[in-house]
Design a protein around this nucleic acid. Sequence first.
DNA 1: AGCTTAAAGTGTCACAGAGACACAATAATA
DNA 2: TATTATTGTGTCTCTGTGACACTTTAAGCT
Lengths: 248, 248
Amino acid sequence: MPVEFNEESFLKHISVDCVVFGFHENQLKVLLLQMKYTRGLALPGGFVKLNESIELAAKRVLIERTGLDDIFLKQFKVFSDPERAEKNLAVQDIIDSGLDQDVSWFNQRFISIGFYALVDFTKVIPQPDFFSDACCWKNLDELEALILDHDQILKKALHTLRIQLTYQPIGYKLLPEKFTMPELQCLYETILGKSLDRRNFQRKILSYNILDRLEERKTGGANKAPFLYKFNLTNYQQALQDGLRGGW
Amino acid sequence: MPVEFNEESFLKHISVDCVVFGFHENQLKVLLLQMKYTRGLALPGGFVKLNESIELAAKRVLIERTGLDDIFLKQFKVFSDPERAEKNLAVQDIIDSGLDQDVSWFNQRFISIGFYALVDFTKVIPQPDFFSDACCWKNLDELEALILDHDQILKKALHTLRIQLTYQPIGYKLLPEKFTMPELQCLYETILGKSLDRRNFQRKILSYNILDRLEERKTGGANKAPFLYKFNLTNYQQALQDGLRGGW
DNA sequence: AGCTTAAAGTGTCACAGAGACACAATAATA
DNA sequence: TATTATTGTGTCTCTGTGACACTTTAAGCT
């Protein structure tokens, strides 16, 4: 046990849960933990130290799970239904693990602050935590049930992502430095859940002036080699301020 | 003292703060409390009972402060900086009030969940709480400093309101049942912080088909009497789903 | 009663962005 | 060298937006 779970170390009643999104092989993926004993799937999460902010707590958790230090993190909702942890299977995991940890910490009522994170899939090295024996990416479209209300948390994170697509650096954070236009389009299509016209997408995204086209092309496919692009950070940050069009 | 403030009654470390917006005489207003002893201005807030959700806690607080039962409430951010309540003046208020309340409850570190509320100004009957001797509306553009980090909370609430203007029922909740086009436009202008062309605004808002024009007109002004409108709830709810245009 | 004032109702025009779609170019493979 | 799959580029039309003009009318004044 790395640390004791008690109120000497952590704020009572408060937890953070993180929905970590990655994008790989044209699929949107989420990082999940498999519990050692109950085998349930869970979002990475943790507690808040007596003297840290919730943002720092979430960041600490994600550094441990992904190996990455600089992660884009965003609060999106607090989950506080008194019933949400009624049948907390994690408690069973503690008991089964045969620790002398006082389970009363886990039997408290928790209010959980949901964060979503956007990471470069290729740079993550998944690490399970003390209660899990696996930490791995799952495709968003072939997802089993999660423990507690984590299904609901994930669903809300996705919904938030969709809404914030026009004013958060979602493309920039989820794609590797260099990427092709079809890759970027696929990311947008996946998040929005609908297909877009290839030519209109390109025209529109280029009109924002947030991309720089490189000389380089991506070869390997049995077709014309697409150009590689990278984000023009200066223009991108500026454009996000205004929200990439739309509205009044 | 209506209730004891201790961990038999409330969840430790957790509070809610509410930014209550109202609209009256073409001004956006916020409901604030004036502390009895320190005279500081504060947002209405409270704590979360052992068995209630944060939404219910916020609602309970607002029923007490406004007399209204059906209030539009929306979480917008959690404020958790460990320094946020360093110099908690409310504690001074407790001491000055000469109560035998244990001040240790107020000396805890609190993580506060920010809610914004939209209410019909004309229906609110402001009620101070135990620590304040006044509860009243303040114009948003002539605001003094607030206690703790409440300035920051208010600022963030306003920013959220602006962003969510296109997909939350902001007009519907802030205006009385019947209203004129200039009133609606003024509300939009106030929230967006810029002026809009009268004719284009009307054309655009009408194109959404979310308003029903009544036969009735509003007389009294020294000018042509404007029509009254009311929201067409069916169409409005539907339109909000899609986000009133813009985006992909 | 008639004139003035202020603000509302209604309409036009030019332009830019969005959606639908066509055709030429090219990297792998057969 | 032809085939296949997919990319690069361009066009046409229509709708929504921004800028702006003219008419209408409730109150107040003389």
